[in-house]
Amino acid sequence: MKEKEKEKAKGKLIIEGKLILKLYVSGMSQKSMKAIENIKLLCDEHLKGSFELEIIDIYKNPKLASEKHIVFSPSLLKILPLPKKTLVGTLSDTKKVLKGLGITIE
């Protein structure tokens, strides 16, 4: 109950349907770690239960990088809901991240 109030105070995060995300990182690089931290913070705090996040290390799956058209690292792919989006970088710009993921604040 407390948390809901908190959300209300900040404005409610609304998304349509379940969010399916894939985060492609390159090993334990600083930028990769930062992106992981940022996306976890966002999802765990605000999108509990309505998201699916997979973190993939392209060092371990080099072929996948080509198949998934990964050029920039880190890259967060929004698979669903459509349209597909690729958020590149450390995901530090929260405004852009929310916009990119199709999350609106009420």
Partner: peptide
């Protein structure tokens, strides 16, 4: 489809090339 949300590198390209 691309949005820049912070610093990034071209490691994806490097890995593919490698």
């Amino acid at each position: 489809e691309i949005e820049e949300t912070g610093e990034y590198d071209l490691e994806g390209l490097f890995i593919r090339l490698n």
